[in-house]
Design a protein around this nucleic acid. Structure first.
Lengths: 334, 334
DNA sequence: CTGTTAGCGCGTTCAG
DNA sequence: CTGAACGCGCTAACAG
């Protein structure tokens, strides 16, 4: 690490001369500037961010706490966050809560030391279930800006980025109904989450609107990860089903495979719509029709909102809840 | 942000008294300690990491630069890194190069300012293709420790964590041969990478050893992401194939789907082994047999090696190249 | 036992 | 045009 001091000694000038020369201050003569700049280049001088941060009381870093990086959705949100942050010269520190409240708390504690300028979070399942929010309220008391996305809670007053979970599933279900499907199943491995419930209600709303009676048996709740295909096969064999909506981003894929294995034609015999995106749609054949949550957009928006708050602390903006739109992409001819 | 100064003023003692009391120094009397600690607790005091970092010339942060977070392999390595780093009280800053050399350079530059104590990297495809390594040599000159994983290069002398790409594919292919397969295809979307070539050579080695002649037509190179299934179907129809090995972590999945769509039984008619892990194996049915690179282990090892170097700068350890073992998991009865 | 001081690296006064 | 001094928050060496 080359420092201003080293450069100064080397050039036989004072530290502040070097500093000023590098920032093109009018105080410094042209040839001194040139000399300094060349030396800086040569020795690969870079201002120490710790020192800068200490001085300016800002880190140019945002903390991201997500429940699970192996979930494609969260990975893609992170993708969007990193990209947007970098564009504004912010770094991104990642913490993974592994769906545990305790990890969320400790990550928060570790980072609340002037290490980051603000947080972007999606709450862990455990935090949501227990309705614990004090760890985050503490943040807010410390005047740390925070933006929640996807896994949000009403118990917290802050900026939030969400999608219309109910509506997106409503649309998907309606699409299938219009396509002539009568026996539409609902599959989910996130029934324990509020967003899972919202998606279920969207499905129910669409059914109701078309006077299709809701049948509890057409709901498949996946819990353990073990042997999902077996439960799916049993489920498919137990009743007449001509379409499936999936509330998460893997069970739609698995359902297509289970259905095909049983000899059903997809989408002719059974049409499937799940959450996903272009890339994951390639994981099945025929490709899965999908509701795209536009995770990159979520990440981008969260980052922009956060940085706005960071850089204009005293802004009187009321906290906003931004509902981003999803898109429904139909694959294959149904 | 509560500071020592604020606490000191509040308690009518000096700053250093507070500092010492909090670190349980013998200098301080029991009751003073108690008073200080209670106040610190009350005001939620946390030492400012910027200040600490400046003083100790360390950030307790590691920089991770990976080509693509949406690739399950890299996501899982990051998972391992974050976990291991946290255990040693290090934070993780993530940068994504998007397979571009320029992004790699700029990420490196941004972070080489006393922002991180060291780097864990996997090189972008472009960097590897162009054989550019000067940006990293610059790092090393600045005495920044660095650990490379997976996408490494011989042109750099540093710690490296890799798997035995050739051997893992050799084992998989041999497994299929022993299973009686005669017409084994090789599918890959990473033929442009050195690790892709190594995996190909492992396949070839296994064939040779069993006196099966290598047939160029049995190699399917995927390039664009568009319509992979179409090329696969064409490929499968063009010749007799009874087994497939995939050199990456998606084409094996796609191949199973393509094969099943053509009416082949998997694995009876066509057996498939690809790179993957337990979770991704559930994305197909029957489940994909997979070579697990143990990405979490890779991340963990890389982190431990890096932190070792960071905390013992002058260590005379020669740079190590650690070859981690993979595991082959066979699914379904072949 | 407690307080004062110096210095980590930086930018920004303010004097010269 | 240049340099000395200060302070961000912290710890450690040194005085009292």
């Amino acid at each position: 690490m080359t420092t201003l001091k080293e450069l100064a000694k080397l050039l036989n000038v004072s530290i502040s001369t070097v500093s000023k020369a590098l920032s093109d201050s009018n105080d410094i003569g042209a040839k001194t500037k040139k000399r300094v700049k060349e030396a800086a280049e040569l020795y690969n001088y870079k201002p120490n961010q710790m020192a800068l941060g200490l001085k300016n009381n800002q880190t140019k870093t945002i903390g991201v706490i997500i429940p699970n990086i192996l979930n494609h959705f969260f990975a893609k949100v992170l993708f969007g966050i990193e990209k947007a942050a970098r564009q504004q010269s912010y770094d991104t520190i990642v913490c993974i809560s592994h769906e545990k409240y305790a990890n969320e708390v400790s990550s928060l504690e570790v980072l609340t030391n002037g290490r980051v300028d603000g947080f972007i979070m999606s709450l862990s399942a455990e935090t949501l279930a227990k309705e614990h929010v004090n760890h985050i309220k503490t943040l807010k008391r410390a005047d740390q800006p925070i933006v929640l996305f996807d896994r949000v809670t009403e118990k917290l007053d802050c900026d939030k980025i969400i999608i219309d979970d109910q509506h997106s599933m409503y649309e998907a279900t309606k699409q299938l109904i219009e396509n002539g499907r009568k026996n539409i199943a609902f599959v989910s491995n996130i029934t324990n989450l509020e967003i899972g419930q919202l998606r279920l209600s969207g499905y129910q709303k669409a059914l109701k609107e078309s006077d299709i009676s809701f049948d509890e048996n057409k709901i498949l709740k996946l819990t353990s990860i073990e042997n999902p295909h077996q439960s799916m096969i049993k489920f498919l064999l137990s009743q007449k089903i001509d379409a499936i909506v999936s509330a998460d981003n893997t069970s739609g894929i698995m359902m297509i495979n289970a259905a095909k294995d049983l000899g059903f034609k997809v989408p002719k015999d059974i049409a499937v719509i799940g959450f996903g995106d272009k890339e994951t749609s390639y994981l099945t054949y025929p490709q899965l029709s999908y509701i795209d949550q536009n995770p990159e957009e979520i990440g981008k928006t969260a980052t922009e909102i956060l940085i706005e708050r960071i850089e204009d602390k005293n802004q009187k903006h009321k906290y906003r809840t931004i509902k981003l739109s999803t898109s429904l992409t139909l694959k294959a001819t149904s």
